[in-house]
Design a protein around this nucleic acid. Structure first.
Lengths: 178, 178
DNA sequence: GTCTATAGTGGGATAGAC
DNA sequence: GTCTATCCCACTATAGAC
């Protein structure tokens, strides 16, 4: 056996996650990634056919991490408090891991994205009084994602969002109850 | 005069806009851009020091176009109808020009971004009853931008947003009135 | 002062040896 | 399964023509 097995898909994805976390999406390049794993770039193609599939794997890791964090915050809370807690965690993740957060939309939704979706739906049910209220989940997710994205892009300027998050979240939840 | 002036910053930006429009942000590369203007790539550096500044110029063009469209829709309408019209136009722009829409966040906000902001604030005033209601504008913009972004990224899946836009917009406006 | 030509760097991807 | 070697393409920088 000339070349012993040194790689596996999960280890590559984890190393890719670190590159993105530290330097953003553009920092995910094959040569540095391979170097961080002690191999040469072409070896990676045995596990991921192209760079795009690597991005998808990083997106899945990020979605899983976010879903874990949100689920952790939900525990021990109910109703509106639970909903605000997971919403706040969505925003906290976008602030603490902006590069990984941005990767969430870089790939087509995978299984972990479904978990995020189900978390939102479950948390909304006691607030709107309806099970599987897809429209409400779309609305809440849109608000959360938009706020996080605009804030990360610096679009709120020097004056900041000026309480727009709290005001919008309260208004949206109140309106969804109607 | 050996080399007559063939370029100017506005013409370069307009050609760059076309490249982005047709092929997305990655399609904005210097050689094709220069070729579309009948010059060689290095000539562009006299007007834009790097690719990033070109992206900023394209973002400004996109913001101006979007603001024009929103202002056009606002005319002849008042109150909630005017607000829903400009919100709908924001969404329509993201659907018709997805690549240019994505460029809006690629650069730091410029003067045209301020115009968009002021449009939102003015349209919100008769709805919330408050002048310069920054928090309300942040909330509405977040919802609009998030919905447009998630939809463009295919995050709503095959079933689509299921009325989440209409539901969220109505709920948010109702809640902001309180 | 503006443009051309070219060299240098680095990324993605593939072929074929081991 | 991993390697070397290589191709193609992109952005940067600079020397020099006009």
């Amino acid at each position: 056996m000339a070349y012993p097995l040194r790689l596996d898909a999960a280890a590559i994805a984890a190393a890719a996650r670190e590159l993105v976390r530290a330097g953003g999406r553009q920092a995910l390049s094959l040569r540095p990634l391979a170097a961080s794993l002690g191999v040469r770039a072409p070896s990676l193609y045995r596990y991921y056919p192209d760079r795009e599939s690597l991005e998808g794997a990083v997106a899945e890791l990020a979605a899983a991490e976010l879903a874990d964090r949100m689920e952790g915050k939900r525990k021990g809370r109910r109703g509106g408090a639970a909903l605000k807690a997971i919403a706040g965690e969505y925003l906290a993740y976008s602030r603490e891991e902006p590069a990984l957060f941005a990767m969430l939309l870089a790939a087509q939704p995978g299984p972990e994205s479904k978990r995020l979706w189900n978390l939102l739906l479950a948390a909304l049910e006691p607030v709107t009084g309806r099970a599987d209220d897809t429209a409400a989940a779309v609305a809440l997710w849109s608000f959360l994602h938009g706020f996080a994205t605009l804030e990360a892009a610096g679009q709120f300027g020097a004056s900041g969002p000026r309480g727009g998050y709290e005001r919008g979240l309260s208004a949206l939840l109140a309106g969804l109850r109607l």
